[in-house]
Design a protein around this nucleic acid. Structure first.
Length: 270
DNA sequence: ATTGACTCCTGATGGC
DNA sequence: TGCCATCAGGAGTCAA
């Protein structure tokens, strides 16, 4: 479900409820997520949440005694609920704070994760090899161009590779390539520098706009207060197989690239 | 070094 | 109404 905008929207939504609050309990109803939820997270009970950051699609709750890393996988979502709110079938974890609210992780498919990190600087294979954040100056089209030379993989899978740039998932990869006029099937090494420079800027714009719209709700994504995101109505190609291209009116086509559904306009994207 | 396939899991949807 | 196949917003891991 969540790509970078949805994770960032979650971070912004939960922060006012959790910042500087003390953790009073961590309830793990279902420890079988992508990896087992470690016992160590119980060490954080009694400590204050000092900061809530995001790296790629990971959310990090920082305390003086260690951090909690959260990942939402395909179907995860975070809500802030009154602490005695009855738990549903897929409400796997509650992080209860001293305002008597809980941060509740819901994740039907359980591809998400809840992990422990001893310190901000602790080595972590999940975080240490990630590419740059797309909304910072460390990422731009020049980087895409430089890293793509001689690469034969499709440009779409290239920009979804977390070592190249983090946070670009299937929806925003489709949208960005459409706006940049690049055929998603094209070999990454054959895309021109000019196209990459445009694509770099477009990725930033698309992600920033999606954040400002509260993310994309396709089916079950919700912001921390339970409201949906409104970027879905902005989608130009994702899920629009057979519909008229907004630029040229030719039908949007779909093809599978890297096991993921891909939508594009064969006339506008080359 | 790159690349592509497979995998984890549940729920929604559509065809028969 | 039921049953079965197919498909989902991610990404680590393995093998070629």
């Amino acid at each position: 479900m969540p790509e970078l905008p949805e994770v960032e929207v979650s971070r912004l939504g939960i922060t006012p409820h959790l910042l500087h609050k003390q953790i009073t309990a961590i309830k793990v109803r279902q420890p079988k997520l992508r990896w087992p939820v470690p016992e160590e997270i119980q060490q954080l009970v009694g400590f204050q949440i000092e900061r809530i950051s995001r790296r790629a699609k990971y959310l990090i709750l920082h305390t003086a005694n260690g951090n909690i890393l959260l990942h939402l996988g395909m179907s995860g979502s975070l809500r802030v609920v009154p602490k005695d709110t009855p738990a549903g079938k897929h409400d796997h974890i509650d992080i209860v704070v001293d305002s008597d609210y809980s941060l509740r992780l819901t994740d039907p498919r359980r591809f998400g994760a809840c992990l422990f990190q001893a310190e901000d600087t602790s080595p972590n294979p999940l975080l240490d090899n990630l590419g740059p954040e797309p909304l910072t100056d460390a990422f731009d089209g020049q980087r895409l161009y430089d890293l793509s030379r001689n690469r034969k993989q499709a440009v779409k899978t290239f920009i979804m590779d977390n070592k190249i740039v983090v946070g670009v998932g299937n929806i925003y990869a489709n949208e960005s390539l459409f706006l940049a006029g690049i055929d998603p099937r094209k070999a990454a090494g054959k895309v021109t520098k000019q196209h990459y420079l445009a694509l770099g800027e477009i990725i930033k714009q698309v992600l920033a706009k999606a954040i400002s719209q509260g993310g994309t709700t396709l089916k079950d994504f919700a912001q921390a207060d339970g409201k949906p995101g409104y970027f879905a109505q902005e989608l130009l190609v994702y899920g629009r197989n057979g519909e008229a291209c907004v630029k040229c009116a030719e039908p949007i086509e779909s093809v599978v690239i890297g096991q993921r559904n891909t939508f594009y306009c064969a006339k506008c994207q080359r």
